[in-house]
Each structure stands twice: as C-alpha cells, then as structure tokens.
C-alpha cells in the first residue's frame, strides 16, 4: 500500500493557545477517502484527534473540512485525488470559530437557519384535522426542488468571504432555504420572511462572489437563490412605493 503525508490543523484548547499543524503518514489505496484517512489516524496513531462525521456517503453533511484550502466533504473526496499534489492539508471549515481540532462551532449558521423560518407557513392551519393533502403539480414542485436539496453542511459559509467578514450575514445556505419555501406553492409565509431577506444582513450583503455554488456538494446553487431573492426584495420595494402613493 502507498502512503501519503496528511497534515492536520490541531487545536486542543487545554494545550494550545493557537492552532498547530501536525503531520501523519497514512496508508491509502484508490478507495481511501479523506474521512477514512482521519478514521485511520484516530484508530492507529492519535486517539485525541476530534472531527465530526456520520453517514460516510455525503448525505448527513457533518464532515465538512477545508482540504488544501477548499471547503469539501471529507467522505466525498479521496486521497488518490491529491496524490499528484503529494500533500494534503486538512483544516477546520473557514469562517467559523474552532472548538477543537476539526470541530467548528456552527451556532451562527443554526441561528440564521432558524431565523428564516424554514418550514411551510399557512395563514390558517388547515388539513390537519381533516387530513386534507396539500396538492402540488410537478411544475410547481420544479420551481423550488433544486433549492430543497441542502444538507446543511456549511461548506457554502466557509466559501463566502462576506460571511467571513460579517457573521451576521444570513449567508448562502439559509437564504437558499428561505427562497426554497418562498417558491413553494403550498407556502404562505413569504411576507413574513421578506423583511429579514431584504435587510442589510440578508440577500443584499451578497456581492455574487459565486464560490458558494462551486463548493456546494448538492448542486443547490445558493448564489442563484440569494440573487433571485434580491430580485424579489427589489420587486417588494417598488410595490411598496406604489402602495404608499395611492
């Protein structure tokens, strides 16, 4: 089996005042993912290494790291892809506070997700007692489906310099999810969500760097959602002007 040097940014708050990089030699073959490499280091070399993971199949969204400076899911990239580069540097997701080793504090992201009310809002709760289904045609579903594939991995936040500069920015993932519900024919909550989306911390903080969409493992295209939300917000502003004039 071939081996490769894997460097990992370590941070143990009880030992380090700031992060340090440690190097490990990891055996690998064509099927070894970066997550497999971390598991092998933890099992064979250093049990103190901390990182998050669960599904191993790019669906739970918990294994996001910076790999050679790019936000990636550890279980979706393989050591063989970095064999040419000859070295692999694994760091915690950028723009989030580091709690320990590769574990970041996602609280800010969670708060933003919560704030945009990511669920179907009905003006009048109906259908629960009578069990009436909320029908939707394939064409109606097609409008939002792309934006509903988010797995909350946070890679887009690690890719977004605007979030890095200002963590109050609602950010790509949460704004994409807000847009997903605004586009849903069953939802009636758009008016409730728009004030936050149209605020300075909302869509307008985005300058369309576009890197969030490049790194998204689910092809959600959050940059498109955020900028479609800008269009909605601008429409709302113009409509309000006319309403006031009347």
């Amino acid at each position: 089996m071939k081996t490769m040097e894997v460097r990992i940014q370590r941070y143990l708050p009880e030992q380090h005042s700031e992060p340090v990089v440690e190097s490990y030699q990891v055996p690998f073959d064509d099927s070894t993912s970066v997550l497999d490499a971390l598991n092998s280091i933890k099992e064979e070399q250093d049990s103190s290494l901390s990182y998050r993971w669960s599904c191993r199949m790019a669906i739970c969204g918990s294994c996001g790291f910076m790999i050679n400076g790019e936000p990636k899911l550890g279980c979706k990239v393989f050591l063989r892809d970095y064999a040419a580069a000859g070295t692999l540097l694994i760091e915690p997701l950028a723009h989030f506070p580091v709690e320990r080793d590769l574990i970041v504090d996602l609280e800010q992201f969670m708060q933003h997700l919560d704030a945009i009310q990511p669920y179907i809002i009905k003006e009048q709760a109906n259908g629960v007692s009578e069990m009436t289904p909320h029908k939707q045609t394939p064409a109606q579903m097609d409008k939002y489906q792309q934006f509903s594939d988010c797995i909350n991995c946070g890679l887009c936040y690690a890719a977004c310099p605007q979030f890095g500069l200002n963590p109050e920015f609602i950010g790509p993932g949460a704004l994409a999810l807000a847009h997903r519900y605004n586009l849903d024919s069953r939802d009636e909550g758009r008016a409730e969500r728009m004030p936050l989306i149209g605020s300075e911390e909302g869509a307008w903080s985005c300058t369309f760097v576009g890197y969030c969409s490049e790194v998204c493992p689910q092809s959600v295209d959050p940059a498109a959602a955020v900028n479609q939300a800008k269009v909605l917000s601008a429409q709302d502003m113009v409509l309000q002007l006319f309403r006031r004039k009347k």
């Binding site: 950028a94 580091v98 310099p161």
Partner: peptide, 17 residues
C-alpha cells in the same frame, strides 16, 4: 474557541476569489 479574522489579503488565498 479559536477564531481567525479575515485579513486584507483574504482574496489571494483562492483562485475563485
């Protein structure tokens, strides 16, 4: 927790930026 701030040269770190 440890937090790195973005410096003025943040955009030099990545070809997308």
């Amino acid at each position: 927790t440890y937090k790195t701030e973005l410096g003025r040269t943040w955009w030099l770190k990545n070809s997308a930026f």
